[in-house]
Design a binder for these strands. Structure first.
Lengths: 209, 209
DNA sequence: CTCTAAACTTGACATCGACAAGATAAAATG
DNA sequence: CATTTTATCTTGTCGATGTCAAGTTTAGAG
């Protein structure tokens, strides 16, 4: 009977995060509520307060986990891409867009500064990890050694590097976002087919030039 | 006394849209409610139903008006830019990013397929007008004649054209969105300064190549 | 002038996020 | 081991929201 419904959940924080993600998958951001998340975790409607404060706190952690997933995806794809420079760009784009398509609601929340506390340490460090991964793609392109997240700030002095990062990231993010929000409807599906590959090659050429 | 509070508002639809936009400017998407919009328009809480159905209907019209504003901004900036190709790209980027910064909440809503009915005729035609404006920038780059919104579909056959549009639009949109959502915090402000101009030139070169 | 349909109001309901106060159990303390 | 503290979770409540149903007012057609 103790195993049935112990007063103390044990790992409620984790359970609530998982529940929140399942709500998002099922009902989207629109159907997402604190109370529904609590319901799925099998606790009372006010239980989340102790762990996350308010709905913003919960969503912030959800967003952080999104960046962690994205980072993992990037690492996997990049490892598979090998040393080819074009392939690295394509892999980055595929990982990014792939994540957005696989977890649209999750992706949305990661870029909603009105819903989430972008200053939160856990969110910032998760986002920084993703950013570092993409920065290293550019650095490899430029024949520079990879860096860790801790020394990112120090590298943000080269105007050329920053420009390349911004061009690459903006493009990939923009494409992912436009596609996710149904803005590419007027463009024939067939043309979007190898869009990622073509864009990857062109971006690579741009950065190399 | 009749002029004070006539039972029939006269142009409630317009008044509600204006009220909704003022709510968004003041309190953001988070503070936006149907009832508050009705309050500011001076009508009862259920009045919007007759004109917009539900909150989604209202936001859809708000989004459509956003695209109309963006189109106007693009036209103005492009006219000022003259015939120089680089300048046209820079102008497009400035208009786009400028709008996002001037009306962040409005901009957000335009790309929220979960909040808005992207199939709505008025929204679709407004978005199409914006898209046409940007397509014509590319077409001028390529020395092709400008087209109207009605003949857009017919032009979406050239893979090269589509690719150029996607690269340009994705980049500008991605940059605007990332900046709006505070994701460029780790990049020094100084470096972002002439980001738009540099990117414009590089994109122009890319499209020309 | 009458009547009908559009435009708006009033009232109600379920649900939400947040808060306060209480209950329970784990952990620290003695 | 006994006790006290503290973290964790529950119950109850509040104002506010979106939506619906039913009633009220007015414009405009016939």
């Amino acid at each position: 009977m103790k195993a049935k419904t112990p007063y103390h959940h044990g790992d409620l924080k984790e359970a609530l995060l998982a529940a929140a993600e399942s709500v998002l998958d099922d009902s989207g951001l629109h159907g997402f509520t604190l109370r529904e998340s609590a319901r799925r975790a099998g606790v009372s409607h006010a239980a989340p307060k102790h762990h996350f404060g308010d709905v913003r706190g919960l969503l912030t952690e959800v967003a952080a986990r999104g960046f962690q997933q994205l980072t993992r995806r990037l690492k996997t794809k990049l490892r598979a891409a090998g040393d080819d420079l074009d392939a690295q760009f394509v892999a980055t784009a595929e990982a990014y867009v792939g994540f957005a398509e696989a977890h649209p609601e999750h992706f949305r929340i990661m870029f909603r500064s009105d819903l989430v506390d972008m200053q939160s340490p856990s969110l910032m460090s998760a986002a920084l990890a993703t950013f570092t991964e993409m920065t290293n793609v550019i650095r490899r392109q430029r024949g520079e050694p990879e860096i860790g997240a801790e020394s990112l700030d120090a590298c943000m002095t080269s105007a050329q590097l920053i420009n390349d990062i911004l061009i690459g990231w903006s493009h990939i993010h923009g494409y992912a976002h436009l596609k996710l929000e149904g803005q590419l409807a007027m463009i024939p599906k067939a043309a979007q087919k190898d869009m990622l590959a073509t864009a990857g090659r062109r971006l690579a050429r741009l950065v190399r030039s």
